[in-house]
Write a protein that binds this DNA or RNA. Structure first.
Lengths: 147, 147
DNA sequence: GCGACAGTATCAAAGCTTTGATAGTTCTCA
DNA sequence: TGAGAACTATCAAAGCTTTGATACTGTCGC
């Protein structure tokens, strides 16, 4: 194959992301949550009453994936869904008290992972990393468009 | 919560990785493969006769996850598994001709994504990104250990 | 008003990943 | 030799994600 694996930056990104997911998963599991569930609750806490579709966009997943996450959260009584007053077929999603409790517990531990990441780099390096990742993302998007 | 989302580098990493997966998925789908299947075939091509467990390590997934991937690949006749000569309960995995063909077709398109990433950065920037990601990975691992 | 369009919600199928548990094999060391 | 550790393989359950398809609702332009 015409490109050695050691030069494929995608592998480095994927590896780092897997370590991240693994650590975050371990962090939030103590609160009885998964990472996608935590992400949904986090977005929901900052914007109560969001629709499932809006939540999906906020969490960078498809509406179908969010539906599954929400179903599991609802089964555990961490959220509740009520029909919108006027747009009757839109369902507003809100945290329950239990949901807020789980989110708080999970976030406390999840933040320690983020803090560790931040602490490993200088402020300049963090900016550099963000910039490089953003440019990589743009390049990927363009390449995907031409595919 | 005690850390603004904009400062959570994990989000940037995750977003980039999702764009990467989405693009790679679209790239290899034309060859009838998924990204994990492509990764397994790629590793296998460089090391014929690997065990499923070794393959799992090479692809950074659990043996259970690799078992599922291999089952699907075998159903599509892209690999074959034969018992090891001496260690009888180890199964050696090898590409079939069809498997090699699918890998070649998939790699041709997957490489264009990697090339796009490489082209978006200078050589120095690529080294920097690799270094930063590596340090982030180490920090995550340490944080997970203390959790 | 009415049709086209966009947004929302959901079902279904296929596939990946994780944790947890079970079982057989090989190797090492006491 | 035999116990224990390490490795391999696999089943099962739960959950996430994707693509594809269906259906309902609201808005906008004609």
């Amino acid at each position: 194959m015409s490109m050695p694996a050691s030069e494929r930056l995608g592998l480095d990104i994927k590896r780092t992301e897997q370590e991240l997911m693994s650590a975050k998963n371990a962090a939030v599991r103590a609160a009885g949550l998964t990472v996608p569930q935590y992400a949904a609750l986090y977005a929901l806490d900052g914007n109560p009453g969001m629709s499932a579709a809006a939540l999906a966009r906020a969490c960078l997943v498809t509406p179908q994936a969010m539906t599954v996450v929400l179903r599991n959260l609802e089964e555990h009584a961490l959220i509740e869904r009520t029909p919108h007053e006027w747009h009757r077929h839109i369902k507003e999603v809100r945290l329950t008290a239990a949901g807020r409790g789980a989110l708080t517990a999970a976030d406390e531990r999840a933040v320690t992972v983020e803090r560790a990441i931040a602490a490993a780099l200088t402020a300049d390096e963090r900016d550099t990393l963000r910039d490089l990742l953003k440019r990589v993302g743009v390049a990927i998007g363009e390449a995907a468009g031409k595919l």
